[in-house]
Design a protein around this nucleic acid. Structure first.
Lengths: 261, 261
DNA sequence: GAATGGAATTGACGCAAATCAACTAAACCC
DNA sequence: GGGTTTAGTTGATTTGCGTCAATTCCATTC
C-alpha cells in the first residue's frame, strides 16, 4: 500500500496483458503501465532499452537499507515487501508492492537506499540505472514531472498510513488493510472480492503494528461474523459495507450483531 | 519532523541571519536556505521575485486537506503543524514544520492538498505559485533535481516515523521526539540542549499516537530521573546518552536507576 | 507415508497505556 | 483584580492487545 503506485495511467490492465508484457524482456512491463507511458514512442523506446530484467525467488532481497543507490526498480510480476530497521534492530514493514509499483525512489536524496526490499514470492523486476534516467530526462522534461506526481502520491499514501498506525484500533487496522489490498489487487485485474495474500500473517501483523496472534484472532472473528471468508492465504470479502464500517471505527450494524449471535 | 527538511544546504544558519532574512519581504528566507540555493544568482533572483509573503497568526490555517493545490510554501519563521483526517473525522498530526521547511509538495499529484497545515504561533510563510515553478524550472533543470532530493528525504523521514508509530513503546516515542526536535531546532540555530515547544501536549500526544495524560506522565517521569528539565513549554536535555538509550528501547543505565531511587 | 519444521490458530494471563475523574496552574478577558 | 477558560498534571480504574504457551495445520523432504 505504500509505494509509488499507479504509475500506469491505464488502471484497467487485464491480467493477460500483464503476463504478455512480462514474457518479453524487451517489452518491459513499464511500457504499458508506468512512468514513460505518456511520452512519445520515440522517447519510449529509448527509455525502454535501458531496462534490465531480473528475477528474484521468494525471500531474496532486491536491495538493502544502506546499499548504494544507483537504480530505480519496477515490479513486473510477483510481489515485494519493503521495510526499515531502527538502531535497535527492530524491523518495520513499510509497504507491499505489486506489478507496476516503483521501488527505491527515496534513495535519490542521500545516495543510499533508505529501506530494504525483499521478494514475497518469485518476482520479476525491471531495473533502470538512475544515471540513464537523468540523462534521458534532460531531453524529456515531462518525465521528471511524471515523477513528481508519483512521489507526491507516495507521500500522501504514507500520511494516510500514519492515521492507521497512530489512531486506529486493531480491528480498524485489519479491516482497512483488507479493503486497501483488495482495491490494490483489483486494479491489477484480480477477481472482484477475493484475493490471495503473498505475505505471511507475521508480515501483515508487522505492517499493521500488531502481534501475529492479534491478526489471527481478528481474522477468525471477521470470518465468524461473516464479514469475510478465509482459507489459508486466500480471502474473500463477503460484507464490504460492514467491513468499511469497521474500518472507520463504527459499530457493526444490528444485522451483523444478530448474525453473530 | 515530517516535511521537506534541509532544503537549505547551509545548516549552520545562525538565528540572526534568520531574522534578517525574514525582515525583508524581497529577500525571502528561501534565498539562503532552500531549494534554489545551489542555482546561479541570475536564476535565483528570477525565482525569488515569485515569492509572496504571508503571515499567519496562531491557529490560522495555511491550507486544508482537499483544497485545490496551486502553491508551494516555505516556512520563514514560526512553526506549523500538518495533519490528515480520516473518513471518520479522526485527526492525525503528521508533522511539525520549522523555518526552511517546504509544505504542500504532495499535492502535485492529485491537484488537491492531501493534508491540512495550521500555524502553531505567529508564522510567516513564503508562497510560490506552482505554475511559476514549472515555468521557471524549464530553464533550470537542476531545480527539479533538487526537488527530487527534497521529496526523497521526506519519503525516508516518513518511513522512519512508521517505525515510531508501529513498533515503539510510549517511552521510546517520547524520547525519540525530544531528541529529533532538539536536533531539528539546533540545526536552525537554537541553543544546544534547550528547546521551546510551540505545540501543546495534546499536539505532541496526537503526533506520537498517545494520550495526553501519557505524555504528561512520561515528561514528569523523565524529569524525575533527571533526563530532562521541564518547565511549561520549555525543555532542557540533561542526559542525552540515557535519553538515547531509552529511545532505542534499552534499559536506562544502572547509574540512572540509582539516581531515581 | 512418516517425519520435520514453519505458519497459523486458540486460550490463559499480565501489562502498558487508554479512559475517567479530580485538581492545579497559567493565560485571557472584562 | 477577579472570574472564566484552556492547558497541564496526577491518581484510580479499565481494557485492548501483547506475551507466553500449547496445539493444529500444511508444506517439504526423505
Amino acid at each position: 500500500m505504500n509505494t509509488i503506485k499507479n504509475l500506469h495511467v491505464h488502471s484497467t490492465a487485464a491480467p493477460n496483458s500483464l503476463k504478455a508484457a512480462v514474457g518479453s524482456s524487451l517489452n518491459c512491463y513499464t511500457r504499458k503501465h508506468c512512468v514513460a507511458c505518456k511520452l512519445g514512442d520515440i522517447h519510449l523506446s529509448q527509455f525502454e532499452r535501458l531496462g534490465k530484467r531480473r528475477v528474484l525467488r521468494k525471500g531474496e532481497q532486491l536491495f538493502r537499507q544502506g546499499d548504494t543507490f544507483q537504480s530505480l526498480f519496477v515490479v513486473q510480476s510477483g510481489s515485494v515487501k519493503s521495510s526499515v530497521v531502527g538502531d535497535d534492530g527492530e524491523e518495520q514493514i513499510t509497504g507491499f508492492h505489486f506489478p507496476g509499483d516503483m521501488l527505491s525512489v527515496d534513495g535519490m536524496d542521500s545516495g543510499q537506499q533508505t529501506y530494504s526490499a525483499e521478494a514475497l514470492e518469485t518476482t520479476s523486476i525491471c531495473e533502470f540505472a538512475f544515471r540513464d534516467f537523468e540523462r534521458i530526462s534532460e531531453s524529456m522534461p515531462d518525465l521528471k514531472s511524471q515523477f513528481f506526481k508519483v512521489m507526491g502520491k507516495e507521500l500522501s499514501r504514507e500520511k494516510k498510513r500514519m492515521l492507521v498506525l497512530g489512531r486506529m484500533r486493531a480491528e480498524q487496522r485489519l479491516a482497512t488493510f483488507i479493503l486497501d489490498t483488495s482495491r490494490e489487487l483489483r486494479s491489477r485485474g484480480q477477481a472482484n472480492d477475493s484475493l490471495t495474500f503473498s505475505m505471511t500473517r507475521q508480515d501483515i501483523a508487522n505492517y499493521l503494528g500488531l502481534a501475529v496472534e492479534t491478526v489471527s484472532r481478528l481474522l477468525s472473528q471477521f470470518a465468524a461474523t461473516d464479514l469475510v471468508r478465509v482459507q489459508r492465504r486466500s480471502l474473500e470479502v463477503l460484507d464490504r459495507p460492514n467491513l468499511e464500517n469497521l474500518a472507520q471505527g463504527f459499530q457493526p450494524t444490528a444485522q451483523l450483531i444478530a448474525r453473530s449471535a
